[in-house]
Nucleic acid binder design. Structure first.
Lengths: 240, 240
DNA sequence: TCCCTCATCTTTACATCGTAAAGATCGGAT
DNA sequence: ATCCGATCTTTACGATGTAAAGATGAGGGA
């Protein structure tokens, strides 16, 4: 007696008359392949991931809920469960996509760069640029407790990100990093570079560098501050 | 019709018979000043903050909810509202306490240190040590979106943290930082130091440095890795 | 002294969320 | 043709944040 769940988020309810729909079906998949939800069969999984990315960049991390994603995709709120298990599953798959975007952005930024100095600067600059362009994604990837790194797709994408960093450091020091062993100096160089760029990005995204930026001459941008940091760090570290 | 809220978390309900309690009162404030909740009047605000800290370190950030804190303090779930407004309020006040603890820890670590090198290392080491000792608090302070920096207590405590950092950098470079203006070099030095230590801490707390640590010789600890990073960073930067 | 007011705390209510479980709905293999 | 199983929807429930109204008691003014 008295139904309890008065949520109005079915987004599809009251569509057909409950039993043995007299109308055979409202033309499912309407000839023109609309990029919208392909009704019952089809690529719901991909549609949900795209919807999730849209919700994330529109409403931020706090707005990224299972029900909001389902709503955005136009399916019932329980539909994602079948494809991702739970919220952790959806979020982890989305983070994997983020890591792949992220890796691609850094890789393309490193190509076609001539001087060693430029190469040393290109990667961290691309790192920060990605985070500024996709703050929601970066937050998802690096500040969510709800990530399941045991998922192969996420594990692999994140691993690849780390490998890229390690290789870049190795190239800079002209001593290729061996897969399984590191000297203290190598480990320190990698951890230092990663810590610095990651920390800078987090502080920047959280607005905690505003204090510093405002005290700097005139309208110094975050990019200029980053460049100053990188140059002073890299000074004397480059070969030749 | 039909009550809806079947939550059993009053923690005090069914205590007295609803109207004009015949028993005058169950000896409120039981002579020995138990540090527990002093019933109706008294220091509920402080009790809530202490309960919140306990919940945070016990159940992590995800467990820190208004209702859990009220439960821990033994009051009704709506009691915190009156003192903190909403969850953001409670969390912000707790974060302010965290910043004060944090500042005190770094200040005491910097005292009684002789050599300039030791002084340069003491502060970041204390930074990381605090985060490792109070991971819940550090997470609250640096990874919560729900912080209201317009609250004076939080703003002031966080500001003081930044000032300590800036002064330490200034002392290291032997050029005291003026309050309102910074050169690019000064700003870069401050942002670089903060970014590096903050980034290292975040990555360490998230377990993202495990990969590196395992590849390092034998049982190298995170502290040793940090020290290696700091020494290679500070090399040539210290006066004399 | 008595009563009144107001700050403090509790109850009640409700929208939203994650998740589980059961029912409906097809596509396709047998 | 029929049945199975994957996919999606409904229904349900406990938890959370928050608003609003009700109780309670301390302290001040008459």
């Amino acid at each position: 007696m008295a139904k309890r769940d008065t949520t109005g988020d079915t987004a599809r309810s009251a569509r057909q008359p409950k039993k043995t729909s007299p109308a055979p079906r409202p033309a499912r998949r309407p000839a023109v392949a609309k990029t919208e939800t392909p009704y019952h069969h089809g690529a719901l999984r991909e549609a949900l991931l795209q919807a999730a990315e849209r919700v994330l960049e529109r409403d931020g991390l706090a707005g990224l809920t299972l029900r909001a994603v389902a709503r955005e995709a136009g399916v019932s709120h329980a539909a994602p469960t079948h494809h991702f298990g739970d919220l952790t599953g959806l979020v982890s798959e989305l983070a994997a996509i983020g890591f792949r975007q992220f890796n691609a952005a850094m890789a393309s930024a490193c190509e076609a760069v001539a001087s060693p100095l430029e190469r040393a600067l290109a990667r961290p600059k691309a790192y920060v640029a990605y985070a500024q362009t996709h703050p929601g994604m970066y937050g998802l990837m690096f500040r969510t407790e709800r990530l399941d790194y045991s998922r192969p797709s996420l594990h692999e994408a994140a691993e690849s990100s780390f490998a890229g960093l390690a290789n870049a450091i190795g190239a800079m020091r002209q001593e290729p990093i061996s897969g399984d062993k590191l000297t203290i100096e190598q480990g320190a160089a990698i951890a230092r570079a990663w810590s610095m760029v990651h920390g800078f990005t987090m502080l920047l995204l959280d607005g905690r560098l505003e204090d510093i930026l405002q005290r700097l001459p005139d309208g110094t941008t975050a990019e200029q501050l980053l460049e100053a940091i990188l140059k002073s760090t890299v000074a004397g570290k480059l070969p030749r």
